[in-house]
Structure formats: structure tokens, C-alpha cells
Simulated scan of single mutants.
Amino acid sequence: MRNNIRFADVLSFDIDRVAAAAGSDPGVLRMENLDTDVPPPPNAVAATRQALADGQGNSWLPFTGLPVLREAIAADLRERTGITYDPGRQICVTSGGTAAVMPVLQAVTEPGQQVVLTDPTYAGLLQRVRLASARPHLVPLHVDGGLWRLDREALAGIREAAAFLLMSPSLPSGVVFTAEDWAAVAEACERLDAYLIYDAGMERIVFAGHPRINPCQVANLAERTIIIGSVSKEYRMIGWRIGWVAGPADIMARIMVAVTYNTTVASGFAQIGVAVALTEPSGVTEAVAEYQARHETVARQLRGLPLVRAAGGWSCLVDAEELGIPARELSDRLLTRGRIAATPMTAWGGEVAHRYVRLVFSNEPIKRLAELRDRFDAAL
């Protein structure tokens, strides 16, 4: 059987391996997967149920998303970016945010072209670059004052790229880009004539004291930016599997073709529920406050250990190598001795990511997170 070069360097998430090892033991702290116990908006749940009862959205059409949802996305984007997007020509609904990544990469890259990501980054972004036959170029994040920072000098040294594929806040690190970071990205995109593919799935999950900047608000970036959004994280609607792409009309024409032939249509029932989530109060502010409180609990519990604090998002990282333990071994010891399910970052970047184990704090209440230090001590 022939080998396929696209898969040569594609690695497993490792999340499923850790989850299977943890099983269904209720005594295990579940910090391996990006789930959440903070409930979705009740109004969105009710609207989805009503759509099912009424038979709304039970159709293949429209391929690019229901008009009511595309209009709600346009209104949300106008508030975030200050830009008016044409719902028909510049917005396409997808089956979750990550399902949008491959069609966008296919529309903006040719085989062998370079795509810039951070190290670490979300494995679902990095491995999709490889599956699209593009070449990932990793710009390292470094730790400064206990927080992650973008290596802007490394960014300035890049000599070729078709696109930059970035998140803020980013998985798995929780890094939040500053105005200076985005200005450096804008300079690099303009210099290299590259697109910015911006995964905005966590854009509003930013903790107090850190900036929240949409790159479309940065000079010279809006006309190059393709936004990928979803309701999975901000709205806690993971199971709905609804996301979207928005961007300049010329490139969106290609992206819509790629999305249509990839999935045909996202769930119509779910689209109706998501439209309500985007247009009515949905508890985002309250959820962010809860995630910040959980993050602070993790930071207090692991004081003195090599934890890098997050500025936003649902997870943070522990430096296993600074503890003198390879990341996979620390993950195994946390589970077998400390009863903590946590994922090593083997597939989530390069030299930087491989040092770390991720702790997801979005799916465990503060009362259980308060046991974290005792469990770490047992593991170590």
C-alpha cells in the first residue's frame, strides 16, 4: 500500500488516549479535553428544541447557511470589528470552527507554501496545515514574567508565507496578543503579501488586565483577514457544531465552494439556536468571570511549580521538562498517581510545545480544582 506524504508528520491529539485511560472514574480531575460544565445559553437551547419540534432547518439548503444566522453573524462581527460584512457574499456557515480551517487553507495556499503558526498552537490548526499540503512555520512563544509572549523578532525574520494562522486567546497556552503583537503581524502580512487567518473562537474569553483586540481594528490588516468564528467556547455550545468564515468577498467566493463540497451544509436545527445565542443575552461575561476564577485557583494551587499563567481561554500549561520529567511521562504520572487527566503537548507545536502538559480548567468547578496541589504532589 502506498504511503501518503500528507500524513507523514501528522500526530494524534493525545487527548483521546488520555481520556480512554481515565475512563469514567468520577474521582479523576478531567483536565485533558476542552469541554465545559458551564451550561449553554438557555434561550439557545429552547430555540433549538423548538426548531426540532417545528421541523425548521431540515434541509440541505442554503449550502452556505441560513440567512437568519448569517445576518446575526454579520451584526456580531460589526460590533467586534467595526466592519460591515455582506451576509450573502462575505459570510459562510460551517460545521464548527475547526471545520472551516481546511477550506480556508485550500482557498489561500498552494501545495508546499508556508503557513505561520505559533509554538505552541492548537493541534487542530497545525495538523490541518499539513493535511492541506502546506508547510507549517512555527514562531515560538516565550515566557516573560510568568506569561506567554510572542517572539516578534522571529516574526520579523520570516521570509516567505502564504498565510498566518493565529488565535488570541490561543490554545493551548492562553496567550493574548498585544497591540504591538498585532502591529508586527500586520507588518509581516503586508511585507509577504500574506493572508491572516484569525481563529476568533475565544476572542472574548480574556481575563481582566489583558487587552482584547480584534485584528481587523489594526491598520492594514482588515483587508487581509479571514475570520473563523464559532459558538463552541464563548457560548458553551460545543455540541451544536456551528462555526463560520468571514472575509473579503473575492476570497470568500472560493472558500464557499470549498465549504460546500466539504460538508454541503451545517445542521439547520443548530443554526436556528445559534442565531438566538448571537442576538440575545447569552451569559458570555458571566462565563468568562467563572473561567478566570478557575484559572486563579489553578495558579494558586500550583504556586512554586513551573506553571505558565494564561491571559485568557480555557487552559494553561505546566513545564514538564523544568520538573525533570518528559511531558508524556508527567501526563502518565498525573493520571496514575494524582488522578488528573492531562494531555501532553506532543502534537501541539515544536520544541516549545513538546515540553508542556496542558491543564484544562473549564470543565471542573473550583471546589475540585482546590485539590490540585495535593494531587500534583502525589504525582511528583
Score class of each variant (00 low, 15 high):
T118Q: 14
G97H: 10
I205N: 05
R149A: 15
A200F: 00
P111L: 12
I83S: 02
S95D: 15
D144F: 11
S170A: 15
I213Q: 05
D181R: 11
A100T: 06
T121R: 04
P120I: 06
G97I: 09
A186D: 06
F177Y: 15
T94C: 04
Q127V: 03
L105K: 11
L125S: 00
A183I: 02
L105Y: 11
R128Y: 04
E190P: 03
C92R: 07
Q114P: 12
V206R: 03
A163S: 13
L196T: 06
R159Q: 14
I158A: 01
P140T: 04
P111I: 10
G112V: 13
T94N: 06
L155N: 07
V129W: 01
S168A: 11
A188D: 02
C189N: 08
D199Y: 12
L125D: 03
R130A: 08
A134N: 09
P211F: 11
E187M: 05
H210P: 01
W148A: 10
A162Y: 02
Y122R: 08
A99N: 10
R152D: 02
I158E: 06
R159W: 06
L131Q: 14
L105H: 12
R152Y: 04
F164K: 00
L196K: 05
E203I: 14
V206M: 08
Y195V: 06
M167N: 04
D151H: 12
I205Q: 10
L141Q: 13
V139R: 04
V93R: 00
N214H: 15
